[in-house]
Simulated scan of single mutants.
Amino acid sequence: MRFVRAVTVSPGVSDSLRLVEDWPEPAPEEGSILVEALAVGICGTDQEIIAGHYGEPPPGQERLVIGHESLGRVLEDPTGTLQRGDLVAGVVRHPDPVPCPSCAVDEWDMCRNGRYTEHGIKGLPGFARDRWRVQPKFAVGLDPVLAPVGMLLEPASVVAKAWDHIERIGARTEWKPQSVLVTGAGPIGLLAALLATQRGLAVHVLDRNTTGPKPDLVRALGATYHTVPVNELDLEPDVVVECTGAPVVVLEAMCKVGPTGIVCLTGVSSGGRTIDFDAGALNRALVLENNVVFGSVNANRRHWEQAAVALARADQTWLNSLITRRVPMSDFASAYEHTGQDIKVVLDFAS
């Protein structure tokens, strides 16, 4: 039996992160396409799994290979879907086995019963291993230009889904949005701003950081960077994409959007915090101005493909600037340390 290196955890056990040097080679049952890992991106989800907050290993296993922001190169594909040497990313979520009405039409991002599985998170091994396998249905080929940054496809797919749903909701009436406010300049917020600029909108990004790379990254898009509270902005945007999950920001974003406006919530709040807030006034504004507030998470294959196109269209130097640390496998543990200074950290298998 051949073995690979794999970054693993014991789900539910805090600080159980381990590099296993003799993890079994992925079995053909995992998928017909065999992939050599190039890199995985790291996000807050990984850190929460490492902290033991959630995570679920595959059936019959005690440890979970983490990593859901994948980038690899095809080693073999007997189906002919991809060619040897092609860049590829693996779709994270798989539909539930029932399936629910949404999963039955390949909209597993809208799963209604929660029985879906997710690579590196829930019931499926992740991509932080030297080689992984994927079914053709869940393999997304990438333009060669994305070789340095293809691991951004997963967060970009989340943003592509958000914009897809924003535009679907907007189509309820004659709607020609001009401006968008993005709250939060992490990877999701910056990619949301990127896709907004590609739509020709006037883009405003709000974040607390006054130093570091974020202000320059926003300005490089031709967008405007703000650091004041939402309620102090002299704006009435047509769209708000909320990416912080901070309760005060969420509520102020709902109040800030203009008439017939749309607020998309992508940040997840931790809960447990009570805020003194005039809910009646918010209700009045939402109803009388025909506003919509909705949540968006994950993505289906259509959104992954949309994201691949958007990334290939983007300025590649700008995309590279989102990656503030590239960590070799020899120093894997440091990649998962939260410094507060990073935008996106990448664990580099190729090195």
Rank of each mutant, 00 (worst) to 15 (best):
I166G: 10
V20C: 11
L221K: 06
V158N: 13
L311N: 10
E29C: 01
P237F: 10
F138V: 02
G261F: 06
D77Q: 04
L194K: 02
P247I: 11
H226D: 12
W23H: 12
A335M: 08
L82N: 00
W163G: 06
F332Q: 02
A279V: 15
E232H: 13
L38Y: 01
V134F: 05
D143E: 05
V345M: 08
E242R: 02
T260L: 11
H165N: 14
V105T: 13
L217H: 05
D238H: 14
K214L: 10
H338E: 12
A171N: 14
P57M: 10
A285Q: 15
I49A: 00
K176Y: 08
W304E: 08
R219C: 02
L251P: 02
P148I: 09
G261E: 11
R168W: 05
C264M: 13
A51K: 14
Q316N: 12
N291G: 13
T317M: 05
V92W: 01
L87C: 06
D348P: 03
A246R: 09
S351T: 13
E48R: 14
S102N: 11
Q135N: 06
A308T: 06
M110Q: 15
R133M: 11
E154A: 07
V268K: 09
W23R: 08
S16Y: 07
L146V: 03
I262D: 07
N298S: 15
D276R: 14
A335F: 09
V346P: 05
P99D: 02
S10P: 00
L38H: 03
V287C: 10
D331A: 14
E69N: 09
P155A: 11
G60C: 11
A299Y: 06
G31T: 08
G90P: 03
A333I: 00
V240H: 01
M329P: 01
L146I: 03
D278W: 07
A196T: 02
G126A: 09
G189Q: 06
R112F: 06
